[in-house]
Write a protein that binds this DNA or RNA. Sequence first.
DNA 1: ACCTTTCTTGATTGATCAATCAATCAACTG
DNA 2: CAGTTGATTGATTGATCAATCAAGAAAGGT
Lengths: 195, 195
Amino acid sequence: MDTRTKILVTAMQMFNERGYGATSVADILKAAGANSGSLYHFFPTKQALLVAVLEAYRDGIEPMLLAPAWEGVADPIDRIFKLLESYRQRLVNTDCFYGCPIGSLALEIHEPDPDVREMLAVNFEGWVRHVKACLDGAADRLPAGTDTLKLARFVLTTMEGGVMQSRTHRTLEAFDNSVDCLRDYISKLTKEGTK
Amino acid sequence: MDTRTKILVTAMQMFNERGYGATSVADILKAAGANSGSLYHFFPTKQALLVAVLEAYRDGIEPMLLAPAWEGVADPIDRIFKLLESYRQRLVNTDCFYGCPIGSLALEIHEPDPDVREMLAVNFEGWVRHVKACLDGAADRLPAGTDTLKLARFVLTTMEGGVMQSRTHRTLEAFDNSVDCLRDYISKLTKEGTK
DNA sequence: ACCTTTCTTGATTGATCAATCAATCAACTG
DNA sequence: CAGTTGATTGATTGATCAATCAAGAAAGGT
């Protein structure tokens, strides 16, 4: 792995585990085994490194997030809840310490430069677009005229809001509760849609 | 206003606007017109100041948040959506810059000392408790055996997830979409409950 | 008036921060 | 081989950070 990638991957991990502000450039360099000159050769500023990290997340949505979550799952509605389950597993694996890296960064960065805010938005949009595609694939089961984009955003809302509470309480309860409610809602929609 | 209160109020505002890590003690002192010795006379550390801020939020839920939002609103379900509307107004007033102070802090602080995490959790619990009380007050309209605590958490999830997306996109759309979906869900529940 | 407690002043500390820089090294090109 | 570009080294910079401290002012009780 070349130095640039090593720095990028390390930053990705540390921004997720400690947050952007709480991770110092020196921390990254030490963990990556690189020198400060190398980092600033590839990334003009710490913030540019953050943007690169967010680009990596954007590019990783399909291969790293969706592909594993949807392996062997064809039904579009099932896929939505399998995706949510992958976030649940993330909470389980980390004792509810780490949830969604994008969400954490989105709320940490209060006055983001346009580049950063834009990349955060792009990540949310990508996520929502894939969920919307699932909902569109299940259009025959949903009430006619259902706004699938709106509903896809609500799925993201459910995930992020649930993760936030579960991380805070260090308990899966709030996340599970939220997904349960979403499942109930969508099942009511499909009942209404196929009636 | 005494010095302690002046420092506390200033910190409250700045932690909300810039986040905890991005707000320096010097920033707070300058804005509050106080000296560092005064701050450290009342609060042993910056973190203790954060805890005091979170305690102030906890104590302010009823008088500062709910009372204004619920003025002249008696119906418990209406109250829930009036509460959500107050967060919407907050987004409107700040061009979608600031949403829920607690949510922002909850996701910013990744490895919180127990005191901080506990106070964040207490704030969420207080919020949820009041929403649960609304739902319990509308129990006759909800399906028998509805888990009102679970549903109250889902209301918080909707608010926090919606605020996160709206802040990131600098648009009310995602927040409004989320609240719309929640309203639709709850209306389906009340239809089922009174049927 | 006198003492005690509470509060305020503001300079100072050492640590840590992001970022810089000249120097050197490695890899490729013609 | 010579020349050029790209990558790496690591010490260093000045700024900023949270926190400290000795000194003194204000307030209140007796």
